[in-house]
Every structure is written in C-alpha cells, then in structure tokens.
Nucleic acid binder design. Structure first.
Length: 600
RNA sequence: GCGCCCUUAGCUCAGUUGGAUAGAGCGUUGGGUUCCGAUCCCAAAGGUCAGAGGUUCGAAUCCUCUAGGGCGCGCCA
C-alpha cells in the first residue's frame, strides 16, 4: 500500500517537473508513513515539506500542486492537505478489506518477502564456551539470535545459523584439569580442589563417566600431582596473598599433561568437551533453537588457517615485533591500542583465531555477517573490524548485535543468580520454571541493547499482565470461535466470506485490517534494523486489536454473509499471529489451559 | 583516566528514514459479561522525553557540553 502511494506521488512529481514547477533531476526519497491520528487519514506524506525549499514555494501551495497532479486510484478515497503541508491519504474501504484476501492467499508466506539474494547471511549466536551448562544470560542470546535469524529469513534472506565452539585454549584446559581432579577425588585421592577450577556438579558427572571407562588407569597419587605446584589462593577468593590461583592451576594443567601423556590428556579433554557440548546442543534444541553449523575453533589451528591469517597480516605490513611478541597495528584502523596476535612463547592469541574465523566467514561467501554478542564484548568489535579492514575486507558487512544482560526477578525481589560460587542459574532451570514460550517471548521483548528485567512471577502468570498469554490467548480465542461456529452448524465458508468482505465496515474491523496490512512492512523494517523485539510489540498490538474487536462485536451472527466475512477476518488474524509467533519461536496454541483445570 | 552503551509517566518499557496534540502494560480510581472462554474489554488521572546549548520550516530522535547508571580497557577466552 505504501509503495502504491509512493508511485502515485512519484508520477505527480514527474508531471510537475515537466512543467518546471519542481526542479528537474533526481527526486528525493518519497516519504509515506502511517498517520498516527485518524483525523490525518490512513497514510501521510511530508514530500511537500521536504521539497518546498528547492522548489521555492510555500509547502502548502506545493502540496496543492502535487495533489492536483495525482493520478486517480481506486484505492484512494480522498486526499487532504493539512497542517504545514502534509498530504493525507484516506483509503477506500475496499483497499483495506482486500488485505484479508492477501493473507488467506499467502497463508504462512504472508509477510515473507521473496528471496532477494543468492548470497546467504550468517548469524552467529550463543557461542558460549563449552565449559559448563548454558545459563540464563546465554538464554537471551539464544532467543534473540534465533528470532533474528528467523526474521532475516522472513525478510527474504538466505540465512545460515552458526555456533562458534571455543574448543581450544586455557579455559578448556582448566575444564580438563577440573575433570581429572574430580576423577582423582572419585578414585579416593584427598583432592583439595583449586579455587580457579570449575566447581559445578556437572564436572563430577563427567569424572564418574571417566572412571566408568578408564577405571583407575588415569589415577596418580595426589602427592605427585601437587609436587612443586605454587600454592593456591585462599578458598574464599580474598586478597590475602596466600597464593596465586592462576599459577596454581597452570601448574596443575602442566602436571596433568606430563603424568597422563598427550593421548590420555586429550581423552580427558575430549570427554569433557563432548559431554558439555552435547548438553548445550540438547538444551538449545529443546528451546527450539537450531543451527546449521557448529564451527570448531580448534579446526582453525589444525587447518593452518590461523597461521595463514597471521601471515597475511605480516606480509601486508600490519604486524611489528615488540617484547618478543607480534603485534597487530590496529590503531591504524581506529582501535584504541595495538593488539598481540602471537605471544612471546610463539602461541597465537585467541584474537588471532578470531581473525582467522572472521576472515573465513568472508571467504565462505556470506553477503552479510551478523554476530550476536554479549554486551561485555563491545570493546572487542573495533579490533575485529580493524583486522578485517587490514586484510582488505569490507568491515561494514559485519554487524554486531550486542545483547545486554537479563536480571531475574521474582516479583519485586531480585532472584538469586548464583546457587553456589560462580554457578549461575541455568537456562534449563529457567525453562523448567516458566516454559519455553514465556522464556523466548520475554527474552526478545526488549530491545537487545536494553537491560532486561525478567520477572519469573509474571512469566508464569496467566493474565493480561503476561504478554505471552495475552498474544497466545488471542490465537486460541479465534480457534475457539471457529469451533463454536462449527458446533452451531456454521462452519466458516471461505468463498462466501471473501465474497462479502465489503461488509467489514466497523471501526474495530478497520483498525484490525490496518494492523494486519502493516505486518509485511514491520518484518522488513525490523529485519533491516536487526530488531526482533519489534515483532513482539507488533503481536501485542495485534492481540489488543483483536480482543477489543471481540468484546465490541458478535462474530457468530445469523446473517451468513456477515458472519463469514467476519470469520474470514478472524482467520486472517490468526494466520498473522501464527506467522509472527513463528518468527519469535513461540508456539501458537489452539486452546489455553483454564485456571479451573488446575484445581482438583 | 580513556572508550562504548543507556537515561521517556509512580514501576517496566515502546516510539519506524527528524514530522502534526510523546504512546503501551502494570499500579491507582471508576465502569462493563442473560451473548463467540472475563486468561477479556472501556474510561480517567499521571510527562520540563536527565539538564543546558546548537542545527532547521519542525528535535525524544542529529551535534556539543554537564550530571547519573551499566560495561569494557590482559602476551585470558
């Protein structure tokens, strides 16, 4: 509809150009938007205001000229000039009513743009280190990333969903050491667990599995393990200075490698990695989050990709040596300071892997690359972009969506975030408490760069305060009305309904039709801005329009034509609710559990 | 100290490329169901868009400064 009006205006302006009323040459983008106030019609354009200066005419006068040259359209009932020079369009009822046909014809494809490009977009999200179960912070990245990928797909892009598995590096070594120490403990060694180790209960589970397969074969006396190790920090993590927790754990890792040997060490490491990764996969799959690709960080080193990336930087003159390490001159590309890519000990840094990883994304042919990162990584963006620029890639094709933290509340009370030291509430436990639908909806409800207050009480409540139930109830209610109609022998006739859409003339119907018509534009705009929360807000609006309509008018009336016209509108509404919920990964139930069902 | 993000109603938040009288929900107050599920709907009150300058026909939106909050500033990942 918008584009139709733009075309009309465009034609009018070309006529004016021919008469030299408007300067020849390129016309500016014609702005047409939804009028906020009903008095201002359905759509409004400010084109006369923006062109007034160059045309050297008063805005209202120019607006009159434009209106006089507008081609006739059966979709436009009348056009008015208002305020400082806005051109307001009032649509013909048929133009609104036709939306129902469009939705019923397209079904699940309504709002879905045709594929515009052969080159896919990549969305990388969650990518949590596989050293423990996902917690509620990762959940938001999962919900937003997954909804964003769906949204981009709906907007006509080909999307690849990827998880970057950090299966290398010191954190993973610490996990392996933690597993091994718990294994020794299970074997009966008097282990004093390191302050810096992973203390979660899941580490015991892996240790027991290790014992199942290897019995006592990997057991070494604790005295051998601890020999000459620097003392650990105080258990309460106070500054006391009793020892160095970093040096302590590093020594234990080194000792593990010499005592076990490379192969057994790798076996422990891999068992920990695969167990946790499998858990993460299951967790996300249950959450309705799926991936096309799990990309291994370790593979970058093993394939030599990291070496190649560093070499390319070196050859293009962006590296220099200082203090025995190799530095990337990222300040030349806007970063705050230069960054080390190869350490003094010859090991590449995590950053070096990340350069290779991102370079690989470009080489894989993605037109756009979207990274969903926790907000604490924001300082990392300039250096990654700097590296890509240095390698001759267009850094603007990389877009980072920063996701702020979610804070759990139970009513007004801030919920306990850690059960034990360093152990966050898991995504699993959150899902168990509030359900997948509420979790996903709440996670995406806020703009991603906004902190999220996640109210557990609200998420589980069944009332209009809870937006998930509010939207889902609208869907269920429509299903219920249709069923009720069938029970009365008034099964909905699509043909008869569509033949009488002109009967949809009530204010509430018009409002609902306008909201339905807006859906494709919403998808397009939300996708362009990488803002899935807009879909959530739209659905709440749509649900409100429906519930209001429901209360104001009867659908199951005796007049066959009117009834089927209204039911057609309801079916269209249900379709759009479904399509929108689908983007968010939230289910569209056909009936809602009633409160009294709970009581025994 | 430097950098990035944020600040809109009592609370939690929307606000589409700068547009007309800044919007929802909750909470508060007052209403609505012999009828398709009241898990719903309607109405009222509630604002110096953190503050001060600037840009222009026009600013919550763009620019500068100030105040407050969050995060980041490793040869960790």
């Amino acid at each position: 509809m918008k584009s139709h009006l733009c075309e009309l205006l465009h034609t009018a302006l070309q006529n004016l150009q021919a008469q030299n009323i408007v300067a020849a040459g390129a016309l500016p983008d014609i702005g047409v938007e939804h009028a906020r106030d009903q008095q201002h019609g359905d759509f409004a354009s400010n084109i006369a205001l923006t062109l007034a200066k160059s045309a050297q005419r008063k805005p209202r006068e120019l607006a009159q000229q434009i209106v006089a040259h507008l081609p006739a359209s059966d979709k436009v009932a009348r056009v008015e000039i208002a305020g400082p020079g806005f051109i307001n369009f009032f649509l013909a009822p048929a133009a609104w009513q036709d939306v129902v046909n469009a939705i019923l014809d397209a079904g699940a494809a309504y709002g879905r743009a045709a594929q515009t490009s052969a080159h896919p977009v990549q969305v990388e999200f969650v990518s949590a280190n596989p050293n423990g179960p996902l917690h509620v912070g990762h959940g938001r990245g999962a919900a937003i990333g997954s909804a964003l990928a769906n949204l981009l797909e709906a907007a006509g892009l080909k999307v690849q969903r990827e998880y970057y598995v950090n299966d290398a590096g010191r954190q993973m070594d610490i996990l392996a050491a933690s597993v091994w120490l718990r294994y020794l403990e299970v074997c009966g060694e008097p282990v004093v667990f390191p302050v810096n180790g992973y203390k979660g209960a899941y580490v015991y589970d892996i240790a027991r599995a290790l014992q199942q397969t290897h019995a006592a074969r990997l057991r070494h006396p604790l005295s051998d393990v601890m020999r000459d190790a620097p003392s650990d920090a105080a258990a309460d993590d106070s500054v006391g200075g009793s020892g160095d927790k970093e040096a302590h754990i590093d020594a234990l890792i080194a000792r593990m490698k010499t005592l076990l040997g490379a192969d057994d060490c790798r076996a422990v490491f891999d068992l920990g990695l695969s167990t946790i990764l499998a858990d993460i996969r299951d967790d996300l799959a249950e959450f309705g989050v799926r991936y096309d690709h799990w990309f291994s960080e370790r593979s970058l080193t093993e394939s030599g990709a990291v070496q190649r990336a560093v070499e390319r930087l070196r050859q293009s003159g962006h590296l220099y040596e200082s203090g025995g390490a190799w530095w990337f001159r990222s300040t030349a590309f806007g970063d705050e300071k230069d960054r080390v890519v190869v350490r003094e000990n010859g090991q590449p840094t995590y950053f070096a892997s990340d350069i290779a990883y991102h370079l690989g994304k470009y080489e894989r042919g993605f037109e756009r690359i979207v990274n969903v990162w926790g907000a604490d990584h924001h300082g990392y963006i300039p250096r990654v972009k700097a590296a890509l620029s240095a390698l001759g890639e267009d850094a603007a094709r990389l877009h980072v969506v920063l996701v702020q933290f979610a804070i759990l509340f139970r009513g007004k009370q801030r919920a306990q975030m850690s059960t034990r030291a360093g152990e966050f509430v898991t995504l699993r436990s959150l899902r168990a408490e509030v359900g997948n639908d509420a979790a996903r909806f709440f996670y995406v409800m806020r703009k991603s760069d906004q902190h999220l207050d996640f109210d557990l009480e609200l998420a589980t409540s069944r009332s209009n305060e809870n937006p998930v139930y509010y939207v889902q109830y609208a869907h269920a209610r429509i299903c219920s009305v249709l069923k009720q109609g069938e029970d009365k022998g008034w099964a909905w006739s699509s043909v008869r309904g569509r033949a009488h859409l002109d009967l949809l003339v009530e204010g509430h119907e018009r409002k609902l039709l306008a909201t339905l018509a807006r859906y494709p534009e919403l998808i397009e705009a939300a996708a362009a801005l990488y803002e899935p929360h807009q879909v959530a807000y739209y659905l709440m609006d749509l649900a409100t329009d429906f519930h209001t309509y429901y209360n104001a008018l009867q659908f199951l009336v005796t007049d066959d034509n009117l009834r089927d016209a209204r039911l057609s509108l309801l079916v269209a509404t249900r379709q759009v609710l479904r399509n929108g919920l689908n983007v968010l990964g939230v289910s569209a139930p056909t009936s809602m559990q009633r409160d009294d069902d709970d009581e025994k």
